[in-house]
Structures are given as structure tokens and as C-alpha cells.
Simulated assay, not measured.
Amino acid sequence: MIDLPHPLKGRGAASNPEGRFESIRHQAEDDGWQHAMLDEDAPRPRTEVTEERARSAISRNDSPDIYFTQAVNPYRGCEHGCIYCYARPSHSYLNLSPGLDFETKLRAKSNLAEVLRMDLSKPGYAVSPINIGSNTDPYQPVEKRWRLTRAVLELLAECRHPCTIVTKNALIERDLDILAPMARERLVQVFLSVNSLDNQLAAKLEPRASAPHTRIKTIRALAEAGVPVGVLVAPIIPALNDRDMEAVLEQAAEAGARCAGYTTLRLPHELKALFREWLALHAPQRASHVMSLVQQMNGGRDYDSDFSTRMRGQGVFAELLRRRFEVACRKHGYGRARELKLDTSRFVPPRRLSPQGELF
């Protein structure tokens, strides 16, 4: 029998496995001495943010199943700690663990707005909406202090560049003074990710994200301010949160969401073992059932990276989810997540920052 780690309050992962590029593996062994005392006195991992100087700001995407071609991510790692986050394996590129390191050892791109200004001012730059938050959440708790997402928005508003934002944090309401004027010029669309209305489940799945009911209130606040807002029921995890799909869509529509989308659980690379560990700790009675359905939607595997199926799955259960989603969307008058056309014609290249300042 494998010994499981203890769940950590406020954290999604309970362990810190090595990334897939590491050649050395560490394994703790319990020799029976002071076991109880160590469990009780072990310090809880604290969030550490390291400043990073970005060399480029825009990452480009050509995946056929993703609606945007350009993205900006102010942070590496995410304090929200969502155990299902498909971005966890990206921390391995930093020689850090996709486990606890991903949610406690963060990188903040302190010069991001400056580098983005240079990118947008290049003569050959072709305008298309920039997605903010494609990999990690731009409004995770550390944004309150670092304000990198706000700096990016200020620049985009200055040069009238369209953008989309994906978040699960109510902190986005702080920037309504920028978002509302951008919305009037069709320069922004926001998506709130809400995959359950169960606060207890959310506290374990996504421990430092805003509570589900708070996200619904944020949808209302954005809609009332005139900001186009949609809801993403993502990810849907079979036999765990799929029962809430219709209720999420109903409440979001009542709050003012006008478009909707969904994805199913994706478990690339190290995420497979991390999610299985989470199930064993937090939902042991249904762990095997959850993974059985996950495998049914992925051709018998924990994850299938095929572009045609990775976002929605395949098979009977995936088809049932698709039909349920479509019925609920028709009932509540939702449009497709891609239907809003942002205006790319207003873009004015920003002035490059100069050591001489604004003398001329």
C-alpha cells in the first residue's frame, strides 16, 4: 500500500514530485521516529515570488482548437492552486515541480508592459486580439501587489488594442475603470471560469481562487458595467462536478453572461499522477469511477493530446456532456464564446519608451 501525503489547507497539491526533465529522484522514507510530531509541526509552504525579466511578451499559438493566436502571461505558476490545471507541467521547464512548486514558487515578469510596448510598436506587427491568462490566471492573488496585469491593460487601452481575459478571480473588478471604456470601443471580452457551485468542492479543487458564488457576482458586476462577459464551465470532471453544469449556466445567464463554453479535464504529463493523488486524498470512494470515465473520454488513456478531441473528449459520456451543454445554452439564450467580434481597426502603435522621455 502506498503512503499518501497529508492534504495541505489552502493548497491544491499535497506533494512536490520532480518534473519530467529531472534526472534525480527524491523519495522520503518514514523510519517510524517522531512521525506524528513531524506531521503536526511541518511548516506550511508559503508563496514565494521571484522577479523575472521577460525577453519577449507575446506568445503565439497555432493550435486549431484554441480561439486566439496571441497571448500574454504576466506570471509563471499560479497561486490559485487548481489541482486540474493543465499548465502545471510547464513549471518543469524552470526545474521546479508541477506540484507544490507550481503554486508556491511563482515568477513575476516585472518588465512585461515595457517589453510588450516594444513588441506592439514594431513596424511589421499584425493586430489580432491578445488573450491575457492563457496559461496562468492574470488575477491570481499576487496580482494585488504586483499589478502586472493592470499595467498590460493600461498599455492596451492606450493603443486601442483588443484583448480577451480568462480568470476565476474577483480581483478583475478592480480594473473596471479600464475595462468599461475599452468595452465601449469593442476592445475587450472577459470570461469567468466557473466549474461548480459547491463551495466545499471548490475549496479543495481550486483552493485560492474566488468562491463560485463570488465569481457569479463578478459576472454581474462586469455585465452591469457594460463589459461583454461569458462563462466557461471548465474543466468538467466526470462524476465530480459535471452535475453542476446546468446550474452554473443558469446562474451565470441570470447574472449577465451572454456566451458560454466548456472543456473537459485534461491531464498532460505530470498532471496525471498529481490528479490521481488528489482523488485518493479528497474523493477516495469515487476515485476509480472518476478515472474510469476520464479514460473512456480519452480512448482508454488518462489523456489524449489529439487536437480534435482533447478539449471535449470522445465517446458516450463526452457526447452526453455536449448535448447537455447545448440544451442548457439554448434554454438560457447563450451565444458561442467566439461570436463577439473585437475591433482591430482602432489600433495605434504605442510610442517606444525613450531615455530622453517625452521631449518632442
Score class of each variant (00 low, 15 high):
104 T>N: 01
167 T>E: 03
150 R>M: 04
127 V>H: 00
75 Y>L: 08
122 K>T: 11
105 K>V: 05
121 S>V: 04
154 E>K: 08
155 L>T: 00
110 S>P: 00
134 S>K: 07
75 Y>H: 04
73 N>P: 03
126 A>W: 07
71 A>C: 14
134 S>P: 09
136 T>Q: 08
53 R>P: 01
152 V>S: 09
185 E>L: 05
180 A>M: 10
94 L>N: 15
132 I>P: 01
162 P>C: 15
87 A>L: 12
143 E>A: 12
63 S>P: 01
54 A>S: 14
75 Y>Q: 01
173 E>H: 02
156 L>M: 11
169 N>R: 04
169 N>A: 09
111 N>C: 12
52 E>S: 14
112 L>V: 10
114 E>P: 06
83 I>G: 03
58 I>M: 12
119 D>Q: 14
133 G>L: 00
104 T>M: 05
60 R>S: 11
119 D>G: 07
155 L>C: 09
168 K>Y: 02
159 C>L: 02
174 R>C: 01
156 L>I: 14
97 S>F: 07
170 A>K: 03
99 G>C: 14
62 D>Q: 12
139 Y>H: 04
74 P>F: 06
182 M>S: 08
133 G>S: 02
145 R>T: 14
183 A>V: 10
54 A>I: 05
122 K>M: 07
173 E>N: 12
165 I>R: 01
131 N>I: 13
85 C>Q: 02
180 A>V: 09
59 S>C: 10
95 N>F: 13
146 W>K: 13
150 R>F: 07
183 A>S: 14
86 Y>R: 12
73 N>D: 11
115 V>N: 06
157 A>M: 02
148 L>V: 11
64 P>H: 06
143 E>I: 05
109 K>E: 00
62 D>T: 11
89 P>S: 09
51 E>W: 13
121 S>M: 09
